[in-house]
Amino acid sequence: MKKLFLGAAVAMSTLTFAQQFGVKAGMNVSSLSKDASMDDAKSKIGFNAGVFMNAPLAENFSIQPELLYSQMGNKATTTSTSTIGGSTITTKTSGSTNLDYVTLPVMFQYNATPAFYLEAGPEFGLMVSGKSKGDRVTTTTTSGGTSSSTSASASVDIKDNLNTFNFGLGLGAGYYFTPNVGITARYVAGLTDIAKDRPSGSDSVKNNVFQVGLAYKF
């Protein structure tokens, strides 16, 4: 029994000694799984940045919890046309859903080589900001061919209507050019609906994000 406790103590001290800390930052390419209100939903560019700790679990396996600030959401457009009194009215709306989170990914990494690893694990997120921004341009064309346009912009805080907790599953890889500097890539598929009160029978909307960036170990 003493040998068992002694071995556990040695293992724990080795794990603590082998821990590495670092910082990382990069680009997010995010989207929402479904947005029926928009005809042409597109990915939105954002950023992620934060800190991490990497600790070995076995010879080729390690665990890496992270604390990141991560921008998600999407961009989209709608176009509608109507005819009133011989004039054609075209309304084009372009907007973005901007969802900012503090996330806690916990990645389990398989070190295929000393420099290259594969990873998978859960990601927990807490929304800190949720806004919808849009621009609307209305063009009126008369039967004689004369046209005129008006435009308007708006920004609405939508955080109160959204689920502030986000849960996803991440898959990724990384390569360290040196013992300290590496490149990382990860895709996180959201598993929770972003809406707080989803009407019965309607489809859920989930965050999806591809991340690429640089990491530096101290």
Rank of each mutant, 00 (worst) to 15 (best):
A41Y: 01
L67N: 05
G46D: 11
G22I: 02
I45L: 13
M53W: 00
N28D: 12
N48M: 05
T16K: 09
A55G: 11
K42S: 15
A49C: 02
Q20W: 01
F52E: 00
M27E: 09
M38G: 04
V51T: 03
L15M: 14
F61V: 08
A36C: 08
P56W: 00
I63D: 01
N60T: 05
A58S: 13
S62R: 05
N60E: 06
V51D: 03
A18V: 13
A49G: 05
L32D: 04
G26A: 02
D35V: 11
A41M: 12
K42R: 13
S37M: 10
A36P: 15
G22P: 01
Q20P: 00
L67G: 04
Q19N: 08
V23Q: 04
V23I: 15
P56C: 05
A36D: 15
E59D: 15
M27W: 12
E66V: 04
I63N: 02
D40K: 10
A25V: 06
E59S: 15
F17I: 06
T14S: 09
L57Y: 11
A58Y: 07
D40T: 11
E59M: 15
G26S: 08
Q64L: 04
E66D: 12
K24G: 00
F21I: 11
P56F: 00
A55V: 13
F47D: 10
A41Q: 14
A55R: 09
K44V: 07
M38I: 11
M38W: 05
G22Y: 02
F47Y: 13
M53I: 00
K42H: 10
G22W: 00
A25L: 10
E59P: 03
S31L: 08
K42N: 13
F61D: 03
A55L: 14
D39W: 07
D39F: 07
N28M: 05
